[in-house]
């Protein structure tokens, strides 16, 4: 059996009396793609935060690439090769999309040195600029490459975050509701980008999403969370026909 890329076991997190995660165990293989769905408050974002170290779980552990990472700070986990987008945008205000990507290239490459800055070698290298341009082209943002992100609408802002998460490229991409606020054209870009990074670069994808059409278009496997517990985990079709899932989540809404 191959080593899973990301593995969690027994993840539990409470906020006061609210149980956000309860004994969540997950495995994601390299190059795999998993959709995490569930009603609001099911603990999807908390799961992301626990995996990335934004929130410290009360119990359980997280391993990435066969190595326990739950004692590492967030930025170290990111440097191991996990790219992430946020449910609520976390863009760098005042910077342009190109600057977002260039600084991410630099950080992920670990090439920044203070002395280089001081003697004027700190600016983005031609290679970094080229890679940034490639990514901008990939998500269709060439035309706004030098516009501060405040001026972009929500959809394009999400694409900037997506591009930022793709720098490296990472081994694992964790997307938190990437399609909210996107128009149809932007959704199409999102789907095609995800397809391309999965197949061309072998990036594993974890996707939290309400939009089931998008989820089923992108992922092979679905995990359903409800009140912090995993109530179903398996191939998309199997899960969607599961009775428990239907009653807990889909039955009422659709």
């Amino acid at each position: 059996m191959i080593e899973p890329l990301l593995e969690t076991a027994g993840l539990t997190k409470r906020f006061g009396r609210v149980v956000a995660l309860s004994d969540v165990s997950l495995r994601i293989d390299a190059g795999g793609s998993v959709g995490v769905v569930g009603p609001n408050g099911a603990g999807k974002t908390t799961l992301f935060d626990c995996v990335l170290g934004v929130v410290k779980p009360d119990a359980g552990w997280v391993a990435f690439d066969g190595r326990r990472i739950d004692r590492l700070p967030t930025f170290r986990r990111a440097l191991l090769g996990i790219g992430r987008t946020f449910q609520r945008l976390e863009l760098f205000g005042g910077m342009t999309p190109r600057e977002h990507l260039c600084v991410t290239e630099r950080v992920r490459g670990g090439r920044g040195r203070l002395w280089k800055d001081v003697i004027g070698l700190g600016r983005p290298s031609p290679r970094e600029r080229r890679e940034a341009d490639d990514l901008l082209a990939l998500v269709g943002l060439e035309d706004v490459a030098d516009v501060p992100v405040e001026a972009l609408n929500l959809g394009r802002s999400r694409l900037v975050e997506l591009a930022r998460a793709l720098v490296g490229p990472p081994e694992l991409l964790m997307l938190d509701e990437p399609s909210s606020g996107l128009d149809d054209a932007e959704r199409a870009i999102l789907v095609s980008v995800l397809e391309r990074v999965r197949h061309e670069r072998g990036v594993a994808v974890v996707l939290v999403e309400h939009d089931l059409d998008l989820v089923t278009a992108v992922v092979d496997r679905l995990v359903v969370l409800d009140v912090g517990r995993v109530i179903a985990d398996g191939p998309v079709d199997t899960v969607l026909s599961d009775a428990a899932v239907r009653s807990a989540y889909l039955g009422s809404g659709r």
């Binding site: 945008l89 005042g94 516009v147 501060p148 405040e150 001026a151 972009l152 802002s157």
Partner: peptide, 8 residues
């Protein structure tokens, strides 16, 4: 200039 505007 653009940078001074908050998003939203």
């Amino acid at each position: 200039g653009l940078g001074s505007r908050a998003p939203g």
